[in-house]
Write a protein that binds this DNA or RNA. Structure first.
Lengths: 338, 338
DNA sequence: TTGTACGCGTTATCAA
DNA sequence: TTGATAACGCGTACAA
């Protein structure tokens, strides 16, 4: 017995193809008697409507493409999980595009969306992968999409972002309140918008407190544990060492704490460390990390909801959602050493 | 200007639909002159062949479905990343099915595969989601698929698994060699095959060393950090405390180390801890975790290669691949306290 | 309430 | 080397 198709069902139930289709899509239009007959045939044969036929006919793939730099990062994987759940609830499946921040791969996945393999796009990168014609309305040239995490410099699309600058400022102020004045920053790539915003918050907080920003204390990392390790090692060699390190994500902060522990620095007595993201592991390392908590669940949920709104009606005005962040004070920050 | 389709290209290049298609799929069959003309039209108009039409016609979706319990676990996300890269290299996109071990969701995603939304299935669960008719050949009732991580009790499918039992035995032997005799185990769910195998290795090692297995020292966890925390707390209350804890994954081991640190147990002087998976964070916590390294990259790559082989020729014999594991000795294990 | 017939966009077959 | 046309599997407008 080969693959069972809609015409097999029609034959078994002794109805037309159309009636089979109707029974499955709009049961109300079918008499109870024939409906049961059809459903029986479906159940017994294990018939499943072929999605390719259905997709082509309805012009919907049922997929949502998620383009994200690195699914291995717990912050990202948390978002993906939330997205996946919410999408599934709405009847969509998630196509995963892990790009490792490679522009070429970003483009390839965007191509897939534009070819109709997905009905909408969740875009977590700040690089613009579209080639747009400035003479025509932007929105006609873009798929239904929502941008998040790394803000994209593009009008007319919905965005779900977080208050990077404000949270960064709050984090630094927390350190200043504890008496720190030499506060280092281990940033992400300076090319990312998240890092730019967090750096602004960092500078603002220092400036407002009357502390001169020392550019030597600003080290460009790449959001990976290893760069947290390397840059902390470099900071420890400074003659004028900082008394606190603000890492722009938890992975790098975990790397920093590791180096400090290894070199017999006590955290926070000798050096305070602060992170960003509040990933699971920041709670369970020693000492537990003071960090900025991101509303991972909410980001994922809001992204899907905004995207579905756009997919249902592309003429809708794009939405701009800015979510608050929360500083979570744990054990890795303390008074500056005297 | 609305969506540009194949017939637009045909009109612009002044050829038939068939020639446009040929130019894109089998350029060799087209004369250089017309080919250039078509390619020009394609480039200028930004035409992208519609995947839904193409999929229906070729009976290929270009997708691979990955069903996995929890993408938030670094071990899983590592595998997914490897899968995604390898799949992309072969021209496939990855459909992500994060099920949270929910059987209903496993079924839903399998349905999607059977409906043709994906050409193949990577299945990382030990629960059988298929309803098979024992009278007919099993292989005809299953999609092209590969099973990994949690071994599925099902004949006729390819598998990529690791030597859980052997590695577990090696880990426990390492502790025994260090003089430990009261060795606790914090397992995953007893319903999972991975836990069953690791438990076998644990028992074997103890038995062969002449140590009686004490069932009170075997605690059923769920592979999450929290359960590592809870169960370690419980173990510490025992009158006859163990001197070592073998956690069946790193997340729980990290939870265990956290509890031990908090309660002023020194690791490994007072208590040894061993993990499983070798996730990134096990290297950077204090102390660095002794653990069993899983070949994450290799698992992902082998899965895709085995799957593609099946997709290309479903009559192929299923392959059974058993990958070795490696005990990585770091700082969380040491001689048993006297 | 049901059936007929068309079309979604593409590729493959066949004939020219 | 190219073009006309059928077919992939389904949903729906229209007619009955």
């Amino acid at each position: 017995m080969a693959k069972v198709g809609i015409k097999d069902i029609a034959r078994i139930a002794n109805v037309s193809l159309a009636t089979v289709s109707r029974t499955l899509r709009t049961p109300d239009l079918v008499s109870e008697e024939t409906r049961l007959r059809v459903l029986n045939a479906v159940a017994e044969s294990g018939y499943k409507p072929n999605r390719m036929g259905m997709n082509l006919r309805t012009q919907r793939s049922g997929n949502i493409m998620v383009i994200i730099p690195d699914i291995t990062n717990p912050f990202n994987s948390g978002i993906i999980r939330a997205i996946e759940h919410e999408a599934q609830q709405h009847g969509y499946a998630v196509l995963l595009g892990d790009t490792q921040s490679n522009p070429e791969r970003e483009r390839q996945y965007v191509d897939l969306v534009e070819a109709g393999q997905a009905d909408g796009l969740l875009y977590f990168s700040g690089r613009n992968p579209f080639t747009i014609n400035p003479d025509r309305p932007i929105k006609d040239q873009l798929p239904a999409m929502v941008n998040s995490n790394e803000e994209l410099d593009l009008e007319g699309i919905s965005k779900v972002i977080v208050d990077n600058e404000g949270a960064s400022k709050e984090a630094v102020n927390h350190l200043i309140d504890l008496g720190h004045r030499r506060i280092a920053a281990i940033t992400g790539p300076l090319s990312t918008v998240s890092t730019q915003r967090r750096l602004e918050g960092y500078r603002e907080a220092l400036t407002e407190a009357g502390i001169t920003v020392d550019d030597k204390l600003i080290c460009e990392g790449n959001y990976q544990v290893e760069s947290g390790i390397e840059l902390t090692e470099r900071l420890l060699q400074f003659k004028q060492r900082p008394t606190a390190i603000f890492c722009f994500n938890d992975d790098m902060a975990i790397g920093a704490v590791n180096v400090l522990n290894k070199n017999d620095y006590r955290v926070p007595e000798d050096m305070s460390v602060i992170g960003f993201d509040d990933i699971l592991y920041s709670k369970v390392i020693q000492p537990a990390l003071t960090t900025v908590a991101q509303p991972v669940e909410d980001i994922g949920r809001q992204c899907i909801q905004a995207l579905i709104a756009q997919m249902n009606d592309k003429t809708l005005e794009p939405t701009y959602l800015k979510l608050p962040l929360e500083l979570v004070i744990r054990d890795s920050t303390g008074p500056a050493p005297s």
